[in-house]
Nucleic acid binder design. Structure first.
Lengths: 209, 209
DNA sequence: CCCTGTGAACCTGTTCACAGCG
DNA sequence: CGCTGTGAACAGGTTCACAGGG
């Protein structure tokens, strides 16, 4: 445990993968796993797995491996998903609707409170079991429910304005699906998912062999 | 130009961002941009931008900056998007449907030929202007159209089987939205988008301040 | 003896700083 | 003079290799 230093970003990214994997193993009734096996299933090296897990405690058993249940608990705690986060989705277009229906968020401890849109034909309806509110109600909802996380699924042209508004309301984290780079206050965490860019990366890999 | 070595992955990831940004500038009628300005808009350093662009040619003009049109052309060429790629989507659930309707793919040179699903109530219909075929027709479609790229948007439990099938049909690149890690032949490029993990990363950043 | 935890060596990508060109 | 291109210095993350515990 070298818990003075902050955990490096590439390590944190892998922690999500470890968690996903060990949750899967737990559902199969497994109780222990070695760094070697965990590494192989994710195409890492065993030393990397051990180093990564050593950032937040040493509960591996020499000669045995890691006990899965404590590992899950520790990973969730580090990642902050040992509690439920309320999330709002801004933009109820195709992508927004898909995200509202996506079951995986809830399973990981994220509760989607509702969505916001400006289109009158969407406002007031429900998508799945989640209501769509008028965008003008965003400050009110965020403040009364103390929402910390928002998902932005609006067209690129609208994204920066939406994000400015979110920041003013005191949001702490934004997952942006719009294909544009955002300017925010430094204390707001931003994650970016660019679907077209992801395909583009594959395209690159295919032309070079 | 140091074109003997392969371009490092983190550089390639940024190339997509540079391209997105300069395409945006071109639409505004801009014709030149300096590494400094490009860097600021993406929150990078100017030296990083220059080093990145130097991997595939030096067409920056000292004292002036980069000419935007040739830069776009070069970036598209490197990324392989100076041509159109046919893509199929496997899984016509909520996420699959959203991806089928997503305009950004076409804009970047990806043409979605169609989707595959096993649900009889989906097969035979159209989503947007894209047909949904029975999953059993996958080999036929991939082979006759020589499709190289597939997007996987099926439940995690089904993903590995789908991917095995895709590999057998000779697919070259897979963008996987299922929350599971895949085993494939080494010559198949795999990109991973894990929506829940992306939120989880934000969650981490929020608990540590 | 197997498997963890970890210093040390290594390697790769980033930043710095400046020579050189338009 | 401004801005690119790039070697050199630096920083960080990964791999190696092994000491130590069950």
């Amino acid at each position: 445990m070298k818990n003075a230093q902050p955990i490096p970003a590439p390590v944190v990214a892998r922690l999500s993968l470890y968690l996903r994997q060990v949750e899967h193993l737990a559902r199969q009734g497994r109780t222990k796993i070695s760094s070697r096996e965990l590494a192989q299933s994710l195409q890492f090296t065993d030393a990397k797995v051990r180093k990564d897990l050593a950032w937040f405690g040493h509960f591996g058993l020499p000669g045995v491996g890691y006990r899965i249940d404590p590992l899950i608990e520790a990973l969730r705690h580090v990642l902050g998903t040992d509690r439920t986060w309320d999330v709002v989705v801004v933009g109820a277009g195709d992508l927004g609707r898909a995200l509202l229906r996506y079951r995986g968020f809830r399973r990981k401890g994220f509760r989607v409170l509702g969505a916001f849109d400006v289109a009158p034909n969407k406002v007031g309806k429900k998508i799945g079991d989640v209501p769509v509110w008028n965008f003008s109600q965003l400050p009110e909802v965020i403040r009364t429910h103390k929402v910390k996380l928002a998902v932005v699924a609006v067209p690129a042209e609208a994204a920066q304005a939406v994000v400015d508004k979110l920041c003013k309301c005191g949001i702490k984290g934004i997952l942006n699906f719009a294909a544009t780079s955002l300017q925010t206050a430094p204390h707001v965490a931003v994650g970016q998912v660019d679907l077209a860019a992801s395909l583009e990366q594959l395209s690159f890999q295919m032309v070079r062999k």
